[in-house]
Design a protein around this nucleic acid. Structure first.
Lengths: 195, 195
DNA sequence: ACGTCATGCGTACAGCCGTACGCAACCATG
DNA sequence: CATGGTTGCGTACGGCTGTACGCATGACGT
């Protein structure tokens, strides 16, 4: 139904043209909403409409702030990778020596990654999306580099690279397993590698 | 255009109703086609129509053989996991001792997994799909169990589990990296862990 | 040779999608 | 208070999706 006649704002028409809201954080909230959708339904579940629904904004708003869906995905995953990398960097920074660093890695795996359920899901979604979307490959590259550099505060480059891979594997296997490894088992594995 | 008049088979009508083919391997070929689609476009790219196109069968044929898309995905990933597991089991079987077993693992990672590009993509797609589709969780579980059991021919259970995780991490990092690890680097990492 | 019936396929339907586009609303000027 | 321009949103369009359903087909028993 095209409204040729101007409706008063109080009209009870189907969609009464919501008052336009001035809110400068909207773009941010859309990115968070996108991450929520990815965590719950996967990248496949991300659509302009779904994100708009979760963020409680009109459809037109999402297409206004993000030209394409890929742009939205790139920003969302960048935020995710940034936040995980920041936490890990802090963990490495606060470790005074090599032994403490190992313990920090254990905590990072068991608390930061495996503890908060959605983070690993987001990461795996990122990995698979990165296979096909070049912009996301760059995100994973940067993340891996930061991760290794953080480790290099306490370990030589080769060890850092291998350790990073081991951590990845431990996290992934635990995430997929019905019988995930305990913090103690993770500690044992890391000490064995670094002994 | 509904054809109320019976068309002769030689008619040049839009879709001349292809001769029905008796081919009992159709189901198998559909599963392979599904794997090809997953490798090329991801799980998100799998649709009855796309699989039908790749397998060169009519749309109705896919919906006939597989009630739902999830059923098709489950069968496809089961086939993939089976085939990778079989290769790995063979590699472990042919290794006479522990040292040879390590070398077999190196070859498995660098040749079987990283060598043939599509396999890792399929695996990562499986991991992420397994998060949301219960039937696929079972597939990953079985695969992990077989993998560990194969390793247990040469290593104790704890070592097997840790080694399995390390392999996973090495493969994943190499697959995602623009600068993947060489076979030599992988060998070094494994020897370091098992030294 | 001929009927029967499980097997296989064409088609239609309803619903979701991304995106383009034009108009409404507001802010900053004058 | 007028007016211009920027920002934001409603809507429509074409295309893709899964799936249900009914009819054509041909293998097989007789």
């Amino acid at each position: 139904m095209r409204t040729l006649v101007r409706m008063p704002p109080t009209s009870t028409a189907a969609t009464p043209r919501r008052a336009r809201r001035h809110d400068p954080d909207r773009r941010d909230r859309l990115i968070d909403a996108a991450l929520a959708v990815i965590a719950e339904k996967g990248v496949a579940g991300v659509s302009h409409r779904e994100v708009a629904r979760v963020a409680d904004v009109p459809l037109g708003s999402t297409t206004y702030h993000f030209t394409s869906l890929d742009e939205l995905l790139a920003e969302a995953f960048t935020r995710h990778a940034d936040s995980v990398a920041l936490v890990f960097e802090e963990r490495m920074r606060e470790a005074p020596d090599r032994v403490a660093a190992i313990e920090s890695v254990v905590r990072h795996v068991s608390a930061d990654l495996l503890g908060a359920g959605t983070d690993i899901v987001l990461s795996v979604e990122l990995y698979v999306a990165a296979v096909r979307i070049p912009a996301l490959r760059a995100v994973t590259q940067t993340w891996m580099r930061r991760s290794r550099q953080a480790l290099e505060r306490h370990f030589d480059p080769t060890t850092a690279r291998e350790l990073d891979a081991l951590v990845e594997g431990l996290v992934l296997h635990s995430a997929l397993s019905t019988d995930p490894m305990t913090a103690e088992q993770i500690r044992a594995a890391l000490h064995r590698f670094l002994r």
